[in-house]
């Protein structure tokens, strides 16, 4: 093509073409990220996210932020560093949550009849907002990793507390003390229920104190910092536009 030739005939058409591409790009990016993020999250933290009786004060609080900060960091690295769009983390989490909510309603409840108050997804929005705001205000990947990453881990439990608190009240059932969430689990037996599979609060020190959740959140925030760094660079790599030699 001629170097000076435009493919459009007017500025108005150029604007229209550009906006149409924006929508097509956004749609594709949203659903491709949704698919990749969802398969990653469900297979690295899924069981804690699926069932209320897995949503304990230790492992859920630790695992969910660590495995979920990945895609937001990668998408941020593309959208912010290339286009100065400050919503990479929120758009990733919104995509994930859309996929999860559709599934919990139509399949967990609609196909296998688990009540939605037993299989609702974790809330990741507060952490995602913090990540985007820190990046937007600071413009610094290092600060976003350290401040945003730590906050992402710390905010997870408080962000979910209003939802999970009613299910963490103690109940006595057949002479045993358990949480209401545990009781839900007893009534809805699954193939992931046996104790050699189900990974919920185990350990020794926690029996002497009540501070399991904050310590878990702090540990999670620490690992989130490292994971953010790592996935930021993954995102940069996935954003490359290089060609390699060869043909089909």
């Amino acid at each position: 093509m001629s170097a000076s030739q435009s493919a459009v005939r007017s500025r108005a058409e150029a604007v229209q073409v550009s906006r149409t591409f924006d929508w097509m790009i956004l749609f594709t990016l949203f659903f491709a990220v949704l698919g990749g993020y969802h398969i990653h999250y469900m297979l690295t933290g899924g069981d804690w996210d699926f069932w209320s009786d897995w949503k304990d004060r230790r492992l859920w609080v630790t695992v969910a932020p660590i495995v979920s900060i990945t895609f937001p960091a990668a998408v941020q690295s593309c959208l912010w560093w290339r286009y100065r769009l400050p919503f990479g983390a929120v758009v990733s989490v919104l995509a994930l949550l859309l996929g999860e909510w559709i599934n919990r309603y139509l399949n967990f409840w609609g196909w296998t009849y688990f009540p939605v108050n037993f299989c609702f997804p974790s809330n990741l929005i507060p952490g995602a907002i913090i990540l985007d705001v820190v990046l937007m205000l600071s413009g610094s990947m290092t600060l976003t990793a350290i401040v945003g990453g730590l906050a992402y881990g710390l905010i997870f439990y408080p962000g979910n507390w209003p939802i999970i608190a009613p299910l963490h009240v103690p109940v006595e059932y057949n002479g045993m003390m358990m949480t209401l969430a545990d009781l839900q689990g007893y009534h809805y037996v699954r193939t992931g229920t046996p104790e050699y599979i189900r990974m919920v609060e185990k350990g020794t020190l926690r029996t002497f104190g009540k501070d399991v959740a904050p310590v878990s959140a702090f540990f999670s925030g620490f690992v989130c910092i490292i994971i953010y760094f790592l996935w930021h660079f993954f995102g940069k790599w996935f954003s490359k536009t290089d060609f390699i030699e060869g043909d089909i």
Binding site: F31, G36, I39, G46
Partner: peptide, 21 residues
């Protein structure tokens, strides 16, 4: 993108609840 959503998200997580049941 649409096909990836159905495959990697919708039917993959659905598999989780079916095999837990």
């Amino acid at each position: 993108g649409w096909a990836i959503y159905w495959g990697a998200s919708y039917f993959t997580e659905q598999d989780g609840t079916w095999h837990q049941t």
